[in-house]
């Protein structure tokens, strides 16, 4: 089962879902909109190799915007701390970013139960596209689990 926006709000109030900062205007019908943190990273190498370290270069999104290149992957994170010990968060793009050809993740949308942090975004664009600081870039949904997890699995 997927939580409705009203239910997400209730669970945040009960402390069973963490969204920090939390703003009521960002609640959608069955999700919560999150913003992009203004620091992104790109890989310095052209060919990535999973068996080697792939050094990153930091880029800040300036107020005038940053043009993303379709040839690169941009590693970023959300502005909000997001997570829950009771519901599984799944990160999704918003239709308004999807229609600009912006992927907010590369097929890895699932967040571990008990992982409470700023989720990593792996941004990729189909065409060159400009993004601005604090853009509402994606949305997070919360899904019920069949069994409460054991407390030993808790991680921060």
């Amino acid at each position: 089962m997927i939580l409705t926006g009203e239910e997400i709000k209730k669970e945040v109030e009960k402390g069973r879902i963490v969204i920090e900062p939390f703003n009521i205007v960002d609640i959608e019908t069955n999700s919560y909109d999150f913003h992009i943190d203004n620091t992104l990273y790109t890989y310095k190498k052209d060919i990535l190799d999973p068996t080697e370290e792939n050094p990153l270069e930091e880029i800040k999104i300036p107020a005038s915007g940053l043009i993303l290149s379709p040839k690169k992957i941009y590693i970023g994170k959300t502005k909000e701390v997001i997570g829950s010990n009771h519901f599984v968060p799944i990160i999704k793009g918003r239709s308004s970013t999807g229609r600009l050809g912006i992927f907010v993740n590369i097929t890895a949308d699932l967040i571990d139960l008990g992982s409470i942090q700023k989720p990593t975004l792996t941004l990729h664009c189909v065409l060159p596209v400009k993004i601005y600081p604090n853009t509402k870039i994606g949305q997070v949904t919360f899904w019920c689990v069949k069994k409460e997890k054991s407390p030993t699995q808790t991680r921060k």
Binding site: N30, S95, G98
Partner: peptide, 16 residues
Amino acid sequence: QITADLGQLGEAHKWT
């Protein structure tokens, strides 16, 4: 869909 696969409860339309 470019990572935006989620619909809104209560909306019906032809999907972009």
